[in-house]
Design a protein around this nucleic acid. Structure first.
Ligand SMILES: [Mn+2]
Ligand SMILES: [Mn+2]
Ligand SMILES: [Mn+2]
Ligand SMILES: [Mn+2]
Lengths: 221, 221
DNA sequence: ATAAATTGTTAGAGTATTCTAACAAATAAT
DNA sequence: ATTATTTGTTAGAATACTCTAACAATTTAT
């Protein structure tokens, strides 16, 4: 069975994988806040355990087995976050740190019960998909708000960044998942957007923010 | 901050402490399923950290600081068990293993919320008292059923053993906390008792079982 | 193309936790 | 009292995870 440390590495590898599923040692080390030699030696260990594919000086790749293991840890993480928000009254900015610990608990039944009690949710409180029991994740095909155009409407559906700081920024602007945004204008100079939503008639969102808001854009007929 | 391993040692020390608060290395090693040298070296480590008092060849004692740390871990354990039973529908025989893991989660808020959601329970699903936030535990002064006499009535209030096997035995006899037992007779030869409760008119309980049932005995006028 | 910067690796060491083997102290049995 | 048993300790080693220092390979900049 994978240790807590190994599980955190698998999760980091999963989250950092690019299109080709490849990850550099330096990214991995940075993500986990360890030195490169530390990351390097753990990668060798995961290779010996058949969880990653790796050759000297080449990027790391999760094997199918490693990918499934990672997805199942992420499943526990996201179910936990959702449970904390929906069933225990936590704010979406409070749950990540707790889930980071709870995801390592070995108890299929605990997570089964959470899932059941919540009616089998498909996304976590930040809009990220919850992998199924087989470790499969559905792709929601969301677009970044930055790709929307003036006149269009979009529903905030997920976040490309779930850091506490960003979540608190969203709280302060009363932006939640499900919020319908009307794009009023887009500033060509700095890519900032002026939008309206709910009872907020005008709000300027910087490029940085817009990039991180993942939306479903209504088709404009 | 104490590691998960250290926390488990503290808890074991707390639970094994006798009247004088003393624990032998061999008991400790047995409880934690490690070798005596392992227990011995951890005790030295805990001493260096000011959590136990220890001298070569003498029994170990938790310091006040160690005792409080231990009680707060036990608090998390018991709140978790109660939450799993009351809010998540687990059976009392399923929760210990999960709580053994959850007790190590660092998140005052998580346990605050559990406590709040349950209305600040004072005992866990097995009748053991939940230490308060200061690490104080109330003594319920329960007696073993073995000390009750024919003709008396007693309410099952806690268990001296919460092993899965024993809990399943109690399930099979429909014995729960709160069950009122009438003592019909007591066999002098083997200390077994014949009792009646609920819709059960006659049930024989062995000495082993009676010893482990902690009860409040009604005063006989 | 060469130099500079970045990325990756190896070597060597430290802490935490655990073990077995060997021995010493304390306790129980004869 | 002596012997046997149990309990406790030390020494030495293994595994997991981490680090820094030194060096090597690769990539980027000039
Ligand atoms: Mn998260
Ligand atoms: Mn984690
Ligand atoms: Mn328990
Ligand atoms: Mn534990």
């Amino acid at each position: 069975m994978a240790s807590q440390t190994e599980e955190n590495y698998l999760k980091a590898l999963f989250n950092l994988a690019n299109q080709e599923g490849e990850i550099n040692i330096s990214e991995l080390a940075q993500q986990l806040e360890v030195s490169m030699p530390t990351a390097n030696s753990m990668v060798k260990n995961l290779q010996k355990r058949g969880l990653v594919q790796y050759e000297k000086y080449k990027p790391v790749k999760l094997t199918p087995v490693g990918k499934k293991e990672a997805a199942l840890i992420i499943r526990k993480h996201r179910l936990t976050e959702m449970f904390l928000v929906n069933k225990m009254g936590f704010g979406w900015e409070e749950v990540h740190e707790i889930a980071e610990q709870v995801e390592h608990i070995h108890s299929p039944k605990l997570f089964e019960r959470m899932d059941e009690m919540m009616g089998f949710p498909t996304v976590d409180p930040h809009g990220s998909p919850i992998p199924d029991k087989q470790g499969r994740i559905q792709n929601l095909q969301l677009k970044s708000l930055i790709d929307a155009n003036p006149g269009q409407e979009a529903v905030l559906s997920a976040l490309a960044d779930s850091s506490t700081d960003f979540l608190q920024y969203l709280n302060s602007r009363n932006l939640k998942l499900g919020t319908e945004l009307k794009i009023l204008s887009k500033e060509p100079f700095d890519q900032s957007m002026i939008v309206s939503y709910g009872s907020v008639e005008k709000e300027t969102l910087s490029q940085k923010v817009c990039e991180k808001l993942l939306v479903k854009i209504f088709e404009t007929n």
